[in-house]
Protein backbone atom coordinates (compact mmCIF):
# COMPACT_ATOMS: atom_id res chain seq x y z
CA UNK A 1 0.00 0.00 0.00
CA UNK A 2 2.72 2.44 0.89
CA UNK A 3 4.36 1.93 -2.50
CA UNK A 4 1.09 2.89 -4.11
CA UNK A 5 0.88 6.06 -2.02
CA UNK A 6 4.53 6.79 -2.76
CA UNK A 7 3.83 6.59 -6.48
CA UNK A 8 0.84 8.87 -6.07
CA UNK A 9 2.75 11.51 -4.09
CA UNK A 10 5.71 11.27 -6.46
CA UNK A 11 3.43 11.67 -9.47
CA UNK A 12 1.65 14.68 -7.99
CA UNK A 13 4.92 16.36 -7.12
CA UNK A 14 6.40 15.65 -10.54
CA UNK A 15 3.35 17.10 -12.30
CA UNK A 16 3.30 20.04 -9.88
CA UNK A 17 6.96 20.90 -10.39
CA UNK A 18 6.66 20.50 -14.15
CA UNK A 19 3.79 22.99 -14.16
CA UNK A 20 5.54 25.43 -11.82
CA UNK A 21 8.52 25.75 -14.13
CA UNK A 22 6.31 26.52 -17.11
CA UNK A 23 6.31 30.12 -18.24
CA UNK A 24 2.56 30.51 -18.24
CA UNK A 25 1.46 32.01 -14.96
CA UNK A 26 -1.80 30.07 -15.05
CA UNK A 27 0.07 26.81 -15.14
CA UNK A 28 2.09 28.03 -12.19
CA UNK A 29 -1.07 28.18 -10.09
CA UNK A 30 -2.16 24.74 -11.22
CA UNK A 31 1.26 23.41 -10.33
CA UNK A 32 0.93 24.87 -6.86
CA UNK A 33 -2.43 23.18 -6.40
CA UNK A 34 -1.00 19.79 -7.39
CA UNK A 35 2.01 20.38 -5.16
CA UNK A 36 -0.15 21.07 -2.12
CA UNK A 37 -2.16 17.89 -2.80
CA UNK A 38 1.11 15.99 -2.82
CA UNK A 39 2.28 17.64 0.40
CA UNK A 40 -1.01 16.83 2.13
CA UNK A 41 -0.71 13.19 1.19
CA UNK A 42 2.88 13.13 2.38
CA UNK A 43 1.75 14.28 5.82
CA UNK A 44 -1.09 11.79 5.65
CA UNK A 45 1.33 8.95 5.04
CA UNK A 46 3.46 9.98 7.98
CA UNK A 47 0.58 9.12 10.31
CA UNK A 48 0.58 5.53 9.14
CA UNK A 49 -2.15 4.11 6.96
CA UNK A 50 -5.12 2.52 8.69
CA UNK A 51 -8.11 1.50 6.60
CA UNK A 52 -11.57 2.70 7.53
CA UNK A 53 -10.97 3.55 11.18
CA UNK A 54 -11.71 7.20 11.74
CA UNK A 55 -10.60 8.67 15.08
CA UNK A 56 -14.15 8.90 16.40
CA UNK A 57 -15.35 7.98 19.87
CA UNK A 58 -18.18 5.43 19.73
CA UNK A 59 -21.16 5.93 21.98
CA UNK A 60 -20.52 4.21 25.28
CA UNK A 61 -16.74 4.32 25.15
CA UNK A 62 -14.32 6.98 26.33
CA UNK A 63 -11.71 6.82 23.54
CA UNK A 64 -11.59 5.68 19.90
CA UNK A 65 -11.22 1.92 19.48
CA UNK A 66 -7.68 1.04 18.43
CA UNK A 67 -6.43 0.70 15.79
CA UNK A 68 -7.62 4.07 14.54
CA UNK A 69 -6.07 6.64 12.25
CA UNK A 70 -3.72 9.17 13.82
CA UNK A 71 -5.79 12.34 14.41
CA UNK A 72 -2.84 14.77 14.53
CA UNK A 73 -1.82 14.59 10.84
CA UNK A 74 -5.48 14.86 9.95
CA UNK A 75 -5.83 18.06 11.93
CA UNK A 76 -2.71 19.41 10.24
CA UNK A 77 -3.95 18.50 6.77
CA UNK A 78 -7.36 19.97 7.43
CA UNK A 79 -5.68 23.27 8.23
CA UNK A 80 -3.40 22.93 5.22
CA UNK A 81 -6.28 22.33 2.82
CA UNK A 82 -8.09 25.45 3.97
CA UNK A 83 -5.02 27.66 4.05
CA UNK A 84 -3.98 26.28 0.65
CA UNK A 85 -7.31 27.32 -0.75
CA UNK A 86 -6.90 30.82 0.69
CA UNK A 87 -3.50 31.13 -0.96
CA UNK A 88 -4.74 29.81 -4.29
CA UNK A 89 -7.76 32.11 -4.28
CA UNK A 90 -5.56 35.12 -3.57
CA UNK A 91 -3.08 34.07 -6.23
CA UNK A 92 -5.73 33.63 -8.86
CA UNK A 93 -7.06 37.13 -8.35
CA UNK A 94 -3.54 38.52 -8.15
CA UNK A 95 -2.57 36.81 -11.38
CA UNK A 96 -5.59 38.04 -13.26
CA UNK A 97 -4.87 41.59 -12.04
CA UNK A 98 -1.21 41.24 -12.89
CA UNK A 99 -2.16 40.09 -16.35
CA UNK A 100 -4.22 43.26 -16.80
CA UNK A 101 -1.36 45.44 -15.57
CA UNK A 102 1.52 43.76 -17.33
CA UNK A 103 -0.28 42.62 -20.41
CA UNK A 104 1.26 39.17 -20.57
CA UNK A 105 0.88 35.81 -18.91
CA UNK A 106 4.53 34.92 -19.51
CA UNK A 107 6.48 35.04 -16.23
CA UNK A 108 9.72 35.76 -18.09
CA UNK A 109 8.23 39.07 -19.17
CA UNK A 110 7.04 40.04 -15.70
CA UNK A 111 9.69 42.69 -15.28
CA UNK A 112 7.58 45.79 -14.81
CA UNK A 113 4.41 47.53 -15.84
CA UNK A 114 5.92 50.47 -17.62
CA UNK A 115 6.20 48.95 -21.08
Amino acid sequence: MKLLLALLVGGLFAAGIYLIVRRSIVKLIMGLILLSHGANLLIFASGGLVRAQAPLVEAGSLAPEPPHADPVPQALILTAIVIGFGVVAFMMVLVSRAYMAVGTDDTEEFTGTDH
Partner: peptide, 17 residues
Amino acid sequence: VALAGGAAMAGLVLVVA
Protein backbone atom coordinates in the same frame (compact mmCIF):
# COMPACT_ATOMS: atom_id res chain seq x y z
CA VAL B 1 13.81 18.08 -12.89
CA ALA B 2 10.16 17.31 -12.20
CA LEU B 3 10.72 13.56 -12.22
CA ALA B 4 13.72 13.91 -9.92
CA GLY B 5 11.59 15.95 -7.52
CA GLY B 6 8.80 13.42 -7.71
CA ALA B 7 11.19 10.54 -7.09
CA ALA B 8 12.64 12.29 -4.04
CA MET B 9 9.17 12.80 -2.59
CA ALA B 10 8.13 9.23 -3.36
CA GLY B 11 11.21 8.01 -1.53
CA LEU B 12 10.29 10.24 1.37
CA VAL B 13 6.85 8.66 1.59
CA LEU B 14 8.40 5.19 1.67
CA VAL B 15 10.55 6.22 4.60
CA VAL B 16 7.99 8.14 6.63
CA ALA B 17 5.29 5.51 6.22
